[in-house]
Design a protein around this nucleic acid. Structure first.
Length: 217
DNA sequence: GCCCAGGGGGCTC
DNA sequence: GAGCCCCATGGG
C-alpha cells in the first residue's frame, strides 16, 4: 500500500522537476566535503566554501590531514560553524587515511552497515551526513532523511514530524526496492521540492503534490 | 533588522 | 529519551 503511495509521489516529482543529477560535485571526495559542509546551511554557502578550497588546491583529504585547523577554518568560513566543520573535515581525513589510505575504491568494498557504524563514530557525522556519504559518494543503497523529507511526509500524513530518523528511513527502505539510482533521485527531488515549496511557511497552492490524497493512517 | 538554512554534539533532568 | 542551547555566515 505504502509502496504505491511512495512511488506515486516520486513519479509526480520526477514529472514536475525532472532528473536532478545529484550529487552536484566532480568527484567522490568532493561529495564528502559537501556532505559535511552542508550541515544546517544552504547549498549556496557550501559552493562558496568548496570554490575557496578548490582555488587553493585544498579540496583533498590527504591535503586536509596535514593542514592547520585554523587555516582550514578560515577557508571554509562561508559554510558557518567553521571551527566545528574544520575539525570534522580533519577527523574524517585522519580516518580516511588510516583506514583506507585515502582510497574511495577500498572504502567502497566495505559492507554498507559496517561502514555506516564507522562513519557515525566520527566527530560531527550523524545519520544524515553518514547516509549522504554512503549513497552519493560510495553508491550504497541507503535512503537519506533530512528536514525536508520529514516536513513533506508528515504533512502528507505518513509519520509525525517528531518521529525518529530511523522510522523515516524504514518507511522508504521497507517499501521501496534497494536501488541506488532510485534513492539518489528520490532524495534529490525531495530536497528540490522542500527548498521551494515546503518551507516552515509552505507554498501549498502551487506545490506539485497539492492534489494528492493524504496518506491518513 | 528579521528570519532561516540539505545537522550534530553536549548538557540536564 | 526528550528538551534545550551552542556553533556563528550569508541570502532573501
Amino acid at each position: 500500500m505504502q509502496t504505491k503511495q511512495l512511488m506515486a509521489i516520486y513519479n509526480r516529482l520526477y514529472k514536475a522537476f525532472g532528473s536532478r543529477n545529484w550529487w552536484p560535485a566532480d568527484t567522490a571526495e568532493e561529495v564528502i566535503f559537501g556532505a559535511i559542509l552542508t550541515q544546517s546551511i544552504t547549498w549556496k554557502n557550501v559552493e562558496q566554501a568548496i570554490a575557496a578550497l578548490k582555488e587553493r588546491r585544498k579540496l583533498s583529504f590527504k591535503t586536509v590531514a596535514t593542514m592547520d585547523g585554523k587555516e582550514l577554518a578560515e577557508i571554509i568560513r562561508p559554510a558557518r560553524f567553521l571551527n566545528q566543520k574544520a575539525q570534522a573535515l580533519k577527523k574524517y581525513a585522519d580516518y580516511f587515511g588510516e583506514k583506507y589510505g585515502y582510497s574511495i575504491v577500498k572504502m567502497k568494498k566495505r559492507e554498507l552497515w559496517a561502514l555506516r557504524e564507522e562513519l557515525l563514530s566520527l566527530y560531527r557525522i550523524g545519520p544524515e551526513t553518514a547516509d549522504s556519504i554512503l549513497l552519493y559518494a560510495l553508491e550504497k543503497p541507503i535512503f537519506v532523511i533530512d528536514v525536508y523529507t520529514k516536513r513533506i511526509f508528515s504533512r502528507h500524513g505518513f509519520l509525525r514530524m517528531e518521529d525518529s530518523y530511523e522510522n523515516y528511513q524504514k518507511l522508504f527502505m521497507e517499501n521501496l526496492p534497494g536501488d541506488v539510482r532510485l534513492y539518489n533521485e528520490y532524495h534529490a527531488l525531495l530536497v528540490h521540492l522542500g527548498s521551494w515549496f515546503c518551507k516552515p511557511k509552505p507554498l501549498c497552492d502551487t506545490c506539485p503534490l497539492r492534489t494528492l490524497k493524504s496518506a491518513g493512517k
